[in-house]
Simulated scan of single mutants.
Amino acid sequence: MKAVIFDMDGVIVDSEAIHIKTKMQTLREYGINCTRQDCLPYFGRSSRAFFSDFITRAASSISLDEIVARKHQLFLEYIADNDAVHPVKGAIALIKDFHNRQVPLALASSSVRRNIEMFLKRFGIYDCFDVVMSGAELLHSKPNPEIYLLTAKKLGIKPQECAVIEDAEAGVTAAKRAGNYCVAYCNPDYRDCGQNVSAADVQVDSLNDIDIGRLLVQRY
Rank of each mutant, 00 (worst) to 15 (best):
A106Q: 03
G90N: 05
M133R: 02
A168E: 03
A184S: 02
D192S: 09
S111G: 11
E146L: 14
S141E: 12
E146K: 07
V183E: 01
K158D: 15
S198W: 02
K158R: 13
V103N: 11
V131W: 04
N187S: 11
Q102L: 10
E146V: 14
Y190E: 00
L138Q: 09
I92C: 11
A80Y: 05
D130Y: 02
D97I: 11
N180C: 15
H140F: 14
A91G: 10
P87F: 12
Q160K: 07
A152C: 08
V202E: 12
T151P: 04
D167Q: 04
V132G: 02
L94F: 14
A175P: 05
P87M: 10
P159N: 08
M118V: 00
D167V: 07
E146Q: 15
F123P: 08
D205C: 02
K153D: 12
M133T: 13
V164I: 14
D83M: 01
V164E: 04
L94C: 13
Y148S: 07
I157K: 04
H86K: 14
L105C: 13
A200L: 08
H99K: 11
H99M: 07
G124R: 01
Q73D: 10
A93K: 13
G124C: 08
K153Y: 09
L107Y: 10
A136W: 00
P159R: 02
E166P: 07
F75L: 03
D209L: 07
P104A: 13
Y148R: 03
S141V: 12
F119M: 09
K96T: 15
V204C: 06
D192E: 06
D97M: 13
A184F: 05
